[in-house]
């Protein structure tokens, strides 16, 4: 099987400081990978490099495109990469306001990606938006409301709908449940699990919350000081951690 995403030796430095370095992995279709580590471990830098939001210093990020097969996205032209960002890729920000247009209705937010790829029938766009709002458990009568009138959990669900409407194959998520209270988190996690399963999505989730990755991720990558220190099956890494840092991380979780 061809990996959906093949990352080879990606590195990013901020001056003399290491953002992330020596990162390589393959992500297969339908796989969900969690990247964990404390703040400053380089996990968000890595995610932004992979998604093309930050230029990498070196390495390859090879994506299996629908039309041309595997292509290094770091060598793609900007229009090509942005096209990918609107179609086959999605990026869910930690703060919904970074990923939404707060001055545009929920329907417009979901419809934007459709219009960006050429949808020009208002009724179709609107019904597709309503369908997606329903999938993320936002009722149809909120379709014309602005996200500013939504709760934090609803905003995050709207952001997910907006991202998934064009049927992406790879979703990048940066702390998708961060900043939400625990009951809202649980609902969002369940929703994400269902969507990942039903749509066969691949995802890369950056989080510091080990409980989130245990529920969502198939496998884990543990980062410390910009380097990957351990990888493996999620429950194996959490239950039988091999590296000293992972052991510390796992043993530092507060028990409820």
């Amino acid at each position: 099987m061809t990996p959906l995403l093949s990352v080879k030796d990606v590195a990013k430095h901020y001056g003399n400081h290491i953002g992330c370095t020596d990162v390589s992995f393959d992500l297969y279709p339908g796989e969900v990978m969690g990247i964990v580590g404390e703040s400053g471990s380089g996990k968000s830098t890595l995610l932004n490099c992979l998604a093309g939001h930050l230029p990498s210093d070196k390495g390859e990020v090879i994506f299996d495109t629908r039309v041309d097969g595997p292509k290094d996205t770091l060598k793609m032209s900007e229009p090509e990469r942005r096209m990918l960002g609107r179609t086959d890729w999605a990026f869910v920000h930690q703060h919904a306001r970074d990923g939404l247009r707060m001055g545009v209705s929920a329907g417009g937010n979901v419809g934007e990606r459709l219009m960006a790829v050429g949808a020009r029938n208002y009724a179709d766009i609107r019904s597709e938006a309503v369908t997606w709002l329903d999938r993320v458990e936002i009722s149809e009568d909120r379709v014309d409301d602005r996200p500013t009138t939504f709760s934090g959990g609803m905003q995050q669900r709207l952001q997910i709908a907006r991202n998934l409407v064009t049927g992406p194959r790879l979703v990048f998520m940066d702390e998708p449940t961060g900043g939400l209270d625990v009951s809202v988190q649980a609902r969002l996690l369940d929703l994400l699990r269902g969507l990942v399963r039903d749509l066969g999505l691949s995802a890369i989730i950056v989080t510091h919350d080990l409980a989130v990755v245990r529920l969502l991720a198939d496998r884990l990558m543990v980062m410390k000081s910009g380097r990957v220190v351990e990888t493996g099956l999620t429950d194996q890494v959490l239950d039988d951690p091999q590296h000293s840092y992972t052991q510390l991380l796992v043993s530092s979780v507060l028990q409820v």
């Binding site: 900007e78 229009p79 942005r82 609107r86 247009r101 545009v104 209705s105 329907g107 417009g108 419809g111 934007e112 990606r113 459709l114 219009m115 960006a116 790829v117 020009r120 208002y122 766009i125 609107r126 379709v143 014309d144």
Partner: peptide
Amino acid sequence: RKMHALEEYGLMHVKLYEDIAK
């Protein structure tokens, strides 16, 4: 500027969409 350069005009239709929705 980038949107003009790359012909990314989905946003322009969002404005018209909002008009119709409202």
